[in-house]
Simulated scan of single mutants.
Amino acid sequence: MNLVTVIVPAYNSSRTIERCIRSLLKQTYSHKEIIIVDDGSTDNTPFICHKYMESFDIKYYSAPHGGVSAIRNLGLEKANGEYVMFVDADDYVKKNFIEKMVSALETAKCDMCICSYLRVVYNDCYPIKEFQKGGIVSRNKYLIDTLKDPGHHYFGVIWNKIFKTDIIRNNNIRFSKDITLGEDFVFSLEYLRYAKKVNVIEDKLIYYCYQDVNTLSRIKEKKISDCEKEMDNRNLIYKTYVDVMKNTGLFSKYQKQINRYWIFFYLRQKYDLIFKYKWSKEEKTLWLKEISDNKNVIEALKKYKKSEITTQYACYIVTQTTKNIIKEVIKIIKN
């Protein structure tokens, strides 16, 4: 039985981290080490972690506040397992999470495994859209699948995946400190450079919890500076995306589809400017111009017909409207 290291990054997670820790302690897979890396929390997170350290074999490290990439890298430095997994302190997992993922990796002799998850909104669970059918796929087929919705949580996050420590260390794969949003996707892409096969399992093993508060990855009331930071991050992510696609020989054939990464961003921003951002007219005009002047957005729009973009925008509006209605209904019911 191979040792599995589970890294839990935490920052002011006192409301949720105990639930996360308990779900990891209940795992059916016993040969594991749990490493909590605290990003300089100022609430009760350290107290809760130390409480569990006294009774269970949990390792806890704290570092000055420097962002999730820095503390995940610290977790990788401390990891002793043959395999590495990540779980966010906001979320929790089913008791067979590690066992299922390890089995899928080893039985199929793959380099990475990915599972599905349940989205938790106000304590009710909802399945996500299915992006892949279960089964073993080549690294290139997996990358082609990401084109269905580049950067979607399913592909973009690391907490629904298991990695081999040797591949990470032998190729010096780390989380980029220059990227503060979407760093998970870059890590996965860099890892896939060196992977050969991926096992896709349809089991929903994780509870991804919607938080109606500001977290490491969600800002409730965005300012223009937040949006500018996101676009800067996307420029860096896209550079890696293109580089990996070129490195694997997929770029030429799938160049148009790769640009959906920017089409989705462009349409989401148009939607948010109308329905979400509480800005002045001048601020909205300024941000729309910044988006339109982005070279990657310009190139992406050239590759799609207006009718294609209009259809995609209509689909996005329907999807977002439905999501918002469901959230509000659930919120009313819960209150």
Rank of each mutant, 00 (worst) to 15 (best):
G40Q: 11
K133T: 06
R234L: 01
K164Q: 14
L286H: 02
E18H: 13
V4D: 03
L118A: 05
K305I: 03
G75H: 15
S280Q: 03
N199L: 05
D178R: 07
Y313G: 13
Y277N: 08
T42I: 06
Y313R: 06
L25R: 02
G66H: 05
G40L: 00
S138N: 04
E77N: 15
L267F: 01
E202D: 11
L181H: 12
V84G: 07
K26I: 13
R119S: 12
Y194N: 01
P64A: 00
Y92F: 14
E54I: 12
E290Y: 02
D91R: 02
N171F: 13
R174P: 05
S307F: 14
E282D: 08
V37C: 00
K32C: 03
I173P: 07
R119A: 12
H153E: 11
A300C: 12
C49S: 09
T240H: 07
R174L: 13
L143V: 00
I168Q: 11
H153C: 15
F251H: 10
S30K: 13
Y122P: 00
Q255I: 06
K295I: 01
I21N: 00
K204S: 09
K100H: 08
M85A: 05
V102C: 12
T310M: 13
R268K: 07
T321F: 03
K284W: 03
N214Q: 00
S176A: 10
Q132M: 07
V84K: 05
E202R: 14
T319I: 12
S116F: 14
K26M: 15
E282Y: 06
K177V: 07
K278R: 10
K196R: 07
R193T: 08
Q211D: 11
I136K: 11
D39S: 02
N170R: 15
E54C: 06
S62Y: 14
L24C: 08
I291K: 12
I309S: 03
E99M: 08
V213Y: 01
I263Y: 11
K109R: 09
I158S: 06
Y117K: 01
Y29W: 10
I291R: 13
D272M: 10
S30T: 03
Y277L: 12
I71N: 02
Q269T: 10
K253S: 11
V200N: 04
E99W: 07
D166Q: 04
L118H: 10
A300V: 08
F175I: 02
E82K: 10
A10M: 06
N171D: 12
S138P: 04
I98C: 07
I237Y: 00
L216Y: 13
V84N: 07
V297D: 05
T285H: 08
I206A: 00
K26A: 12
E202A: 13
L25A: 05
K133W: 01
K334I: 12
K109G: 06
I21L: 10
F97Y: 15
V93F: 05
S30G: 11
C115G: 04
Y83E: 04
N235W: 04
G75Q: 14
N324W: 02
Y60D: 02
Y117C: 09
Y254I: 08
N335H: 10
D88L: 03
N44D: 13
P64H: 12
E18A: 07
E183Q: 09
D178W: 00
I330L: 04
M112L: 11
R119G: 14
K78Y: 14
L189I: 04
S252F: 08
I274A: 13
Q255V: 15
A89Y: 15
V213P: 14
V8Q: 04
K284S: 05
K270D: 01
K78C: 09
